[in-house]
Design a protein around this nucleic acid. Structure first.
Lengths: 208, 208
DNA sequence: ACCGGGGTGTTACCACCGGTAACATCGTCG
DNA sequence: CGACGATGTTACCGGTGGTAACACCCCGGT
């Protein structure tokens, strides 16, 4: 039961340096921040992935629990969805740097599949899948739809949240509304703009 | 006019080795595949990012153009959305390896912002934003909604497409339907399952 | 005919990365 | 006391992205 505090301490140091230097901070830098040298880090966490995993688990634990709780909230459906969205956005808002770790997991991944969703996000996706599959009547395709939607919604909120966090175009509440509206079919329900018929002129994009 | 062919040739080599070894293939490996050594690569593309950028641009050009065309198709809205989704999925289905490059852009990025959407995806997001903003009557929040939705939809399709590509749970057509249904508010419209959520309820039902 | 320049190519090197081996130093417990 | 297990160190390995310096070879100009 002793090694726990030291480990926490090292994680705190890693946290600090990642906060400062972004992800991709070197093990050397982390060790230096902790006032020690590399091999100790490697003794505690087997390799870099171990460190990152421990770090993300620590930080995503709360977020995941919060999202799970939000999903279980006995609200009307729309309110519940908004609550979940708000919970997620509030979570990433609180710790932007570390959240990056979440999205940008392991660069040198030699394993076959390079999934777009980091493990932590994947857990959230599974929560959503479960909630959808358990609570909604979606007919024969229930399982498939739930799983696809779980991934889809997670990815949607990830990308939208990233953008929002980066450019802060509006308040969190407004952003929640925008996403909930999208999920609520407002894209389908909106009226056409009269200016419709496409001009024949090709609008080439400006090269960067 | 001269330097083009050699450059293309190098890109082909890079393509081959990335196809074989996945992204993260070393410059040495790429150079070896091309039958040459590193410095030549660095002469043609300034650094690794340059190479990757050139590579992705080459491969995403077609996809981006296809998506753009699909967005401009004069179909009914739902059909157009399905067409766009299908176009994207077909695109990533055709070249899974290179598509990975697309999602997993630059590992060792020291720059402040680590955006979740790679540049190519961002372009698609902008296309969607433009299409939504130009064609839909969304009231005062038009700009904000369009931009948020552009990102959100792109992220959604990215994550869902990645999952679909990886586990192939259904046909492409079915996947398109699932995503279009989500966008069409089926999540909101679906009926509750009777086994629902009565957490604090006095209901005499413990089983699950 | 000679020379010069640009593209092509090389070897050798740099700093740094993740990761490891080997050794030193404590406190503690039998 | 001695053994042991953490804690810590220095020094090293192979590999990476990236660069410098040098060699070649062809082609065009005066």
């Amino acid at each position: 039961m002793d090694p726990e505090p030291r480990r926490e301490q090292l994680l705190n140091a890693a946290d600090r340096v990642i906060q400062r230097e972004g992800p991709g901070a070197s093990m050397n830098a982390i060790a230096a921040e902790a006032g020690i040298t590399k091999p100790i880090l490697y003794r505690h966490f087997g390799d870099r992935n171990g460190l990152v995993r421990a770090l993300t688990e620590r930080h995503t634990g709360g977020l995941l629990a919060a999202v799970r709780a939000a999903l279980a909230e006995p609200l009307e459906r729309r309110d519940r969805v908004e609550h979940v969205l708000d919970t997620y956005l509030a979570g990433i808002e609180a710790r932007p740097q570390v959240y990056r770790l979440l999205t940008h997991p392991e660069p040198g991944d030699p394993s076959g599949a390079g999934h777009a969703l980091a493990p932590a996000l994947r857990q959230i996706a599974e929560e959503i899948t479960r909630a959808v599959a358990d609570q909604l009547d979606l007919g024969a395709d229930r399982e498939l739809l739930a799983e696809a939607w779980g991934r889809a919604i997670t990815g949607m909120v990830l990308a939208a949240g990233d953008w929002w966090l980066d450019s802060r175009p509006c308040s969190r509440t407004r952003m929640v509304q925008a996403l909930a509206d999208l999920l609520w079919g407002r894209l389908a329900a909106a009226a056409d703009l009269p200016t419709a018929v496409l001009p024949a002129g090709p609008a080439p994009e400006p090269a960067d």
